[in-house]
Simulated assay, not measured.
Amino acid sequence: MTTRILFAASSESWENYAQVLPAALEAAGVDHEILQLSDAPDPATVDWVIYAPSSPLQDFTPYTRLKGVLNLWAGVENVEGNRTLTAPLARMVDPDLTQGMVEWVTGHVLRHHLGMDAHIHGAPWDPTPPPLTRDRPVAMLGMGVLGTACAKALRDLGFPVTGWSRSVKDVPGVRSLTDEDGLRVALEGADIVVLLTPHTRSTENLMNAERLSLMRDGAVLLNPGRGALIDDAALLAALPRLGHATLDAFRVEPLPEDAPYWSHPKVTVTPHIASTTRPASAARTLAENIRRGEAGEPLLHLVDRSEALA
Rank of each mutant, 00 (worst) to 15 (best):
G142M: 12
M143H: 01
G144H: 05
G147F: 07
T148S: 15
T148M: 11
K152F: 09
L154F: 11
D156W: 06
G158M: 09
F159D: 03
F159N: 02
F159S: 01
S165E: 08
R166N: 08
V168Y: 05
V168Q: 12
K169T: 14
S176V: 09
S176R: 05
D181R: 03
G182P: 13
V185Y: 07
L187S: 13
E188C: 13
A190P: 10
I192L: 14
V194K: 05
L196E: 06
P198W: 09
H199I: 02
T200I: 13
T200R: 14
S202K: 14
S202Y: 04
S202D: 12
S202L: 10
T203G: 01
T203W: 01
E204N: 12
E204Y: 15
N205D: 15
L206D: 03
M207L: 15
N208A: 13
N208R: 10
A209V: 12
A209D: 14
R211W: 06
R211C: 08
L212H: 04
S213D: 15
S213H: 11
G218Q: 01
V220M: 05
L221V: 05
L221Q: 06
N223T: 09
P224F: 07
G227A: 11
G227T: 12
G227R: 11
A228K: 12
L229R: 04
D231C: 04
D232H: 11
A233S: 12
A234K: 08
L236Y: 01
L236W: 08
A237E: 15
P240A: 07
P240C: 08
P240H: 07
R241F: 11
L242F: 06
L242Y: 05
L242M: 07
T246F: 03
T246K: 01
L247Y: 00
